[in-house]
Design a protein around this nucleic acid. Structure first.
Lengths: 142, 142
DNA sequence: AGTCCAGTTGCAAACGATTCTCATCTAAAT
DNA sequence: ATTTAGATGAGAATCGTTTGCAACTGGACT
């Protein structure tokens, strides 16, 4: 999917929520659409500043919250760091965080998901959502 | 394991770390040893106050940090809540959090653990530690 | 039992990420 | 162009947690 289409999708989601598309928000949506990593609010603010100089961090947080409420972005609370965001367009996936570099690798395992659902069911629960993070280190090649 | 033995273990861990056992710490260790739930710092402070009146929340936090560094307690950062603690004596396990009541249920799946290690390995990583939380709701009986 | 001092205490202030308040602006419907 | 509900930026407020500091105290040593 192109970043233009992605921007469009984010914009549409906000409009449908009755949210106005301001210069600041357009800039932020663009930055989010372009991002292929997992930036935090401060980093997104930094990136948005070139397109919307003077945009405040409050506006970034407000817009991120709105986007999250519309379900078009995800907020991740990894250990010992501030919240990191990504557009929700992609398939569901979990995360591996390199404890040395902070780099995030996405992965998905249907078999694990199935087992999770099974375990919850056995204990009398339905899963609302889950969170699985592997904190990893590059395997030394020997 | 009795709570007395558990208190002993926590005490020993602190002593070995060159940490003094004060009246306040003894009280807190006792409270932690007795706890069979996942209390947060404020709740532990509340419970410790009967045995060590006047104990400050700073001391609770400082001691919890020391215990965590010794690996004898675990600190869990579940979504939308402050850190919750439990003694580390038990086998490794993951958590299910009832999103309605906040209740925590422990579970463990060797099959999932195996799959996790396998996935990490395939991507060239070793797992340092992981975190898996299922946010669940009681299954309506029909 | 008494001395000593590094480690500990309680308090209050500092912290960092995030949210809120509010007076001023502005998107976008009319 | 007018209107106004909603958005903005700046700074203050929040919350859980950590820290600085002067006074206190375990516990190792006589």
């Amino acid at each position: 999917m192109t970043t233009e289409k992605r921007t469009e999708g984010l914009t549409k989601a906000l409009r449908e929520a009755g949210v106005r598309i301001t210069r600041q928000r357009a800039a932020l949506l663009d930055v989010i659409a372009k991002a292929d990593d997992h930036p935090d609010a401060v980093e997104l603010h930094r990136r948005a500043e070139s397109e919307a100089p003077g945009i405040s961090i409050s506006t970034v947080y407000r817009t991120l919250t709105a986007l999250e409420e519309q379900g078009v972005i995800h907020r991740h609370l990894f250990e010992g760091a501030s919240a990191r965001f990504e557009h929700a367009e992609a398939e569901h996936h979990d995360h591996m965080i390199d404890v040395d570099s902070g780099e995030v690798v996405e992965f998905c395992s249907d078999r694990i998901e199935t087992l999770q659902a099974q375990i919850a069911k056995e204990l009398g629960y339905d899963i609302v959502h889950h969170r699985m993070e592997l904190y990893v280190r590059k395997r030394p090649k020997n």
